Amino acid sequence: MRRFFVLGRLYSSRCYSTNAGNLSIIEKANKEGAQSLIGSFTHKNGFDQCLDKMTIDSMDGGIAKATLPISDELGNSYGTLHGGAIATLIDVMGTLALLTHNSEKGGVSIEMNMSFLSPAKVGDTILAEGQVVKSGRSMGFTQVTLYRKSDMKVVATGRHTKAL
């Protein structure tokens, strides 16, 4: 296992493994429909591969739900879920919610904002829910809420706007 440093943090090559055979969530939804995304998270050597332990639980009617155990790789120096991981979750969950409306339009991010409300520790599990607020011909607006599974306390909320 190869180890390397990025911004002062030690990573192993296992964390950033090559998954060349996998499709991205957009490619898979385009090819097989949004319902095909339910189950283990699909990624293709992209930034969102940090969510490789995520399970998509449901996708229907503008709502996507997923579960993610917080591993060391997703933690910050305080041993809690890193803000960058939260941003990635909000991005992906907003996209998944939009794909329930049209599996061929994952869109391109225009704007995101988030509020960090409570910590979630490494070892906790996050329940993520993305919901379409509005989806038009050229723009999609979503809201995402992340909950700590143990007590359903809100960890973070975010809004994600995409050009479709």
Rank of each mutant, 00 (worst) to 15 (best):
M1K: 12
R2Y: 14
R3T: 13
R3K: 13
F4W: 13
Y11P: 00
S13H: 13
R14C: 08
Y16A: 12
T18P: 06
T18I: 10
N19E: 13
A20P: 04
A20Q: 07
G21Y: 11
L23Q: 07
L23F: 07
E27W: 12
E27M: 11
K28I: 01
K28V: 02
K28W: 00
A29G: 02
E32H: 11
Q35S: 15
S36D: 07
F41R: 06
K44Q: 09
N45E: 07
G46I: 06
F47P: 10
Q49T: 08
Q49S: 01
L51D: 01
D57K: 15
M59Y: 05
G62H: 04
G62S: 04
I63F: 14
A64N: 02
A66G: 07
P69R: 04
I70Y: 02
I70W: 00
D72P: 09
G75S: 03
N76L: 02
T80W: 03
T80Y: 06
L81P: 05
G83P: 06
G83A: 10
I86P: 05
L89D: 01
I90Q: 10
L96G: 00
H101S: 13
N102S: 05
N102M: 06
S103D: 02
S103E: 03
E104D: 10
G106V: 00
S109C: 01
I110M: 15
E111T: 13
M112G: 09
M112Q: 10
M114T: 06
M114C: 12
M114Y: 05
S118C: 14
P119T: 10
K121D: 15
K121T: 07
V122C: 10
G123D: 04
D124G: 11
D124Y: 03
I126D: 03
I126F: 13
L127Y: 14
L127F: 15
E129G: 09
Q131W: 04
V133I: 15
K134M: 14
S135T: 08
S138L: 15
M139S: 09
G140E: 01
F141D: 09
F141C: 09
T142H: 06
T142N: 03
V144Q: 01
V144N: 00
L146D: 01
L146V: 06
Y147I: 08
K149D: 15
D151G: 10
K153V: 13
V155P: 06
V155G: 04
T157F: 05
R159W: 11
R159E: 12
H160G: 08
K162H: 08
L164S: 14
L164W: 08
